[in-house]
Design a protein around this nucleic acid. Structure first.
Length: 428
RNA sequence: GGAGGAGUGGCCGAGCGGUUGAAGGCGGCGGUCUUGAAAACCGCUAGGCCCGAAAGGGUCUCGGGGGUUCGAAUCCCUCCUCCUCCGCCA
């Protein structure tokens, strides 16, 4: 959320932002609301000043044993008027808040202006696509043939867009998560957090998921709780309503969690396989930083995520998202995209964003520089990585002619084997 | 889930319905003193919003919300959180 005063004084910036992101913003509506609110506040406060003065006078008269009934009667009328004004002001405050809560963040000046994902800019590539002597199969075929993935049974248990991993497939999922966590905690300096998998309304408003994106999440009926769509939610709210010690920044945390998305708007995309699921696992990287260091920290966050793919030896590229494609809360976002041999294309596997003070303002996360006034921190988040999509990338990139899957070296300690056996050898 | 207790400024802790934004202490900042430091002493030490070019003025905030009243930290209702005891449970 944006600061009201800043918003009011920089309407031109927000107009430009709306154009660049391709959204509608009712700025005329804002102006009218804002003007009426301020006029009413001025009037109400004048009345309150009058009442406060009269109250002192009443106290003085009573102490002196004199009659104050005339003044009291007059103040009764003033108080009634104040009450009416205050009610109207509260209503306008609420409207204003509702408006500001759905205004997205301002993109950083370095973000390319664009109209959609076709305008995203490739920043760099790592590695090369693997060579196959056969036509590489999509991951669901490789997985089902090897007996490590069972989507039909997942559909019976829960429905479509849920996955069931089996045997080495389940272990691969677990191995990936452990490998990610060990790398980030032992080599990149993140502290591991294991948070709740549900979040309350205030937490989701803090990150920007509510009120605008309620339709993309699962709500737990009758509880006021939601299944978390990303650990970004829990990690952002780790310090909601707190003031952090400036010397403690940057604070780097990571978390493995399940993530749940109803993806109401995604029907028809990625319908085969496990790329787009209602439930998936993710290891999230997260930083609380001082404003002046956040963009350096974003670059290193991206490198931390990239390190995972480098260790796994999977070809990928880094893409900077354009203004039309960055998320609601983000000021700047890099995506990591892995190479998928079955489609001969890159697929998003991580998204790393600097939200600047956008979420910190919503969630009231501050820091206090020594001897200075407290200010909002910057929050950064990134997938390090999405486990399910990494599973898929490993299976596709390391599939063999006979249907077996070579385990990347970095995963062998976690898998206890260097190969997931071929279908013929796999048990049903 | 049941019963009881508590929520005041960065922290501790006072606070008869009427100069209480809030005593006192601690902590923090500045100063005096000192070669330096400590001690001692003196002063300063919340934020939001509105008006204003500024200086400054006004207003709101004592867990949240609502009510009573001319006036609420102080009275009433309600919600939340924490603590204690009981129950249930992996």
């Amino acid at each position: 959320m944006h600061d009201l005063n800043y918003f009011r004084e920089h309407l031109d910036l927000f107009e430009q932002m709306a154009r660049h992101r391709g959204i509608e913003l009712d700025l005329d509506g804002f102006r009218a609301l804002d003007r009426e609110r301020r006029e009413l506040i001025t009037a109400a406060e004048r009345s309150k000043a009058e009442r406060n003065k009269a109250s002192e006078e009443i106290a003085r008269l009573k102490k002196a044993g004199q009659d104050a009934s005339g003044l009291i009667a007059e103040m009764k009328r003033v108080s009634d008027r104040i009450k009416q004004d205050d009610e109207r002001i509260a209503l306008l405050d609420e409207r204003l808040r509702e408006f500001l809560l759905i205004v997205p963040n301002l993109p950083h000046p370095s973000v390319p202006v664009g109209r959609g994902e076709q305008d995203n800019v490739e920043v760099r590539r790592w590695g090369t696509p693997p060579q196959f002597s056969f036509a590489p199969r999509p991951h669901w075929e490789v997985g089902e043939r090897a007996g490590i993935l069972d989507l039909p049974r997942a559909a019976i248990i829960a429905g479509t867009r849920f996955a069931l991993y089996k045997g080495a497939g389940a272990r691969l999922e677990r191995a990936l998560a452990n490998f990610f966590l060990d790398l980030h905690t032992q080599e990149h300096g993140y502290t591991e957090i294991l948070p709740p998998f549900v979040a309350n309304r205030a937490s989701l408003v803090g990150t920007g998921h509510l009120p605008k994106f309620a339709g993309d999440m699962f709500r737990l009926e009758g509880t006021g709780l939601w299944l978390t769509p990303t650990a970004e939610v829990q990690l952002t709210n780790l310090y909601r309503d707190e003031t952090l010690d400036a010397d403690a920044l940057p604070i780097k945390v990571c978390a493995w969690t399940a993530c749940f998305r109803s993806e109401a708007g995604a029907a028809g995309k990625d319908t085969r396989g496990i790329a787009r699921q209602h439930q998936f696992q993710k290891v999230e990287l997260f930083k609380f930083t001082r404003p002046e260091q956040s963009y350096d920290e974003l670059e290193s966050l991206v490198r931390d995520a990239e390190a995972v793919l480098q260790r796994l030896g999977i070809h990928y590229r880094v893409v900077q998202l354009c203004t039309a494609d960055i998320g609601f809360a983000s000021a700047k976002t890099y995506d990591l995209e892995v190479w998928l041999p079955s489609t001969g294309a890159f697929k998003e596997i991580s998204s790393c964003s600097n939200c600047e003070a956008f979420q910190a303002r919503r969630a009231a996360i501050r820091y206090r520089p020594k001897g200075g006034k407290s200010d909002f921190v910057h929050t950064l988040n990134g997938s390090g990585l999405a486990v399910g999509r990494t599973w898929l990338a490993v299976v596709e990139n390391y599939q063999q002619t006979d249907g077996s899957i070579v385990v990347p070296e970095a995963l062998r300690p976690y898998m206890g084997t260097d190969r997931i056996p071929a279908p013929a050898a796999a048990k049903a």
